[in-house]
Amino acid sequence: MKDGRTTVYNNELTDKERLDKVNEDNKQLEEDFLEYLSSTDKSKGTIKQYKANLHIFWCWCLEHNKNKFFVEMTKREAIKFQNYALNEWQWSPKRIRTFKATLRSLENYIIKILDDEFPDYKRIWSEIESPADEAVRTKSVLQMEDIQWLLKTLVDKKDYMRSCMLALAIFSGKRKAELTRFKASYFDKENLICDGALYKTPEKMQTKGRGQRGKLLDVYILAKPFQPYLDLWLKQREELGITSDWLFPQYKDGEWLDEHIGISTMDSWARTFNSMLGKIGKVWYFHCARHFFTSYLLEQNLPENVVQSLQGWASSDMVRIYDDRTNESQFEKYFGSEGINQVEKKGLADL
Rank of each mutant, 00 (worst) to 15 (best):
D115C: 08
E134G: 05
S316V: 15
Y334M: 10
L232A: 11
R210D: 13
Y160C: 02
A167P: 06
E328C: 00
M318I: 09
T138M: 08
L37I: 00
D188M: 12
F81T: 01
Q250R: 15
R290K: 11
G336R: 02
N53H: 15
K16Y: 05
L234H: 01
N191M: 09
K208N: 05
V219K: 02
G214I: 05
K66D: 14
L232E: 07
D41G: 07
F33H: 03
C61F: 06
D25V: 08
V71P: 01
L150A: 04
D323P: 00
D188W: 10
R5I: 15
E299Y: 12
R18K: 14
T180C: 14
L198G: 02
F292K: 03
I261N: 01
S264Q: 11
L114E: 12
Y334I: 12
S264V: 04
K157M: 12
L151H: 08
K215E: 13
K204W: 03
C59R: 06
T46R: 11
W284S: 03
Q300N: 15
Q308D: 04
Y109K: 06
D195T: 06
P228N: 09
Y334P: 01
Y199S: 02
K235T: 12
Y186H: 14
F286Q: 03
I79K: 11
K224S: 07
E31P: 00
V22T: 14
Y285V: 04
K235N: 12
M73K: 04
F273H: 03
L302V: 04
W256N: 02
K157W: 10
V136H: 09
V141S: 08
D156R: 08
S315C: 07
N26C: 09
E259A: 08
V319W: 00
S38L: 12
G339Y: 06
L230I: 05
R76N: 11
T40C: 13
R271M: 10
K200D: 04
H287S: 09
F286E: 01
S126T: 11
K112T: 13
G196A: 06
I47K: 11
Q82E: 15
K48D: 10
Q227Y: 13
I193V: 15
G4V: 11
L166N: 02
D15S: 12
D258E: 08
E107N: 09
S275D: 14
W256P: 02
L86S: 10
Q227I: 07
W89A: 00
Y121A: 00
G211P: 06
R95L: 10
V283Y: 13
E24K: 14
H55P: 01
L19E: 13
N67M: 09
E127W: 00
D258G: 03
K51S: 15
D245T: 06
V307Q: 05
L310C: 03
W91F: 10
L154Q: 05
I96M: 07
T7E: 14
R325M: 01
K94H: 10
R97F: 05
Q227F: 12
E30H: 08
E72W: 00
